[in-house]
Amino acid sequence: MAGAKRFSRFALAGAGLAAALTATATAIVVASGGDSHAAARLSVADPYIPLPAGADQMAAGYLTVTNAGRGADRLVRVSSPGASSVTMHRSTESSMESVDGLEVPAEGALTLTRGGTHLMIMGWKQPPAVGDQLELDLTFEKAGTIAVQVPVKPLTYRPGS
């Protein structure tokens, strides 16, 4: 009898532990699946567009998306009320390639920078000038759309310079 009691107590303790683990796991799933802000907490810093050099006003946009959350997200679309086309590109060794989306890692950042991943902006509704701002609407898979006012900077500007 004593032996059987001991066994059942042990079994109960084990069952309790398993229940606690399940509850914890469920809580994580709820947090990442139900509340997108708990999964990916995004903010955008240092956005800028160097003044385009050519008459065709082909421009690049650069910015950093920081993710303070524990879930990854993905930039899937960029548009602007002030330009007909905004696309995502990655510069390669000798050319560039368009990309469908860009990962924003959990507790990390997506950095769009000169010579690397960048936005390509075409079809300006008004000719850009230094000091202008262009709204870019960044749509993320989970976090939804974030609108950013992006300043047009001198051609050779770099953040911090």
């Binding site: 160097p50 385009p52 050099a53 050519g54 065709d56 082909m58 421009a59 690049a60 590109h89 510069s91 560039m96 000169r114 010579g115 690397g116 960048h118 390509m120 902006i121 051609l155 050779t156």
Partner: peptide, 12 residues
């Protein structure tokens, strides 16, 4: 010249 990133950055 219609290169948005590397070419204007390099020449700049």
């Amino acid at each position: 010249t219609s290169c948005p990133d590397v070419c204007p950055t390099t020449m700049g």
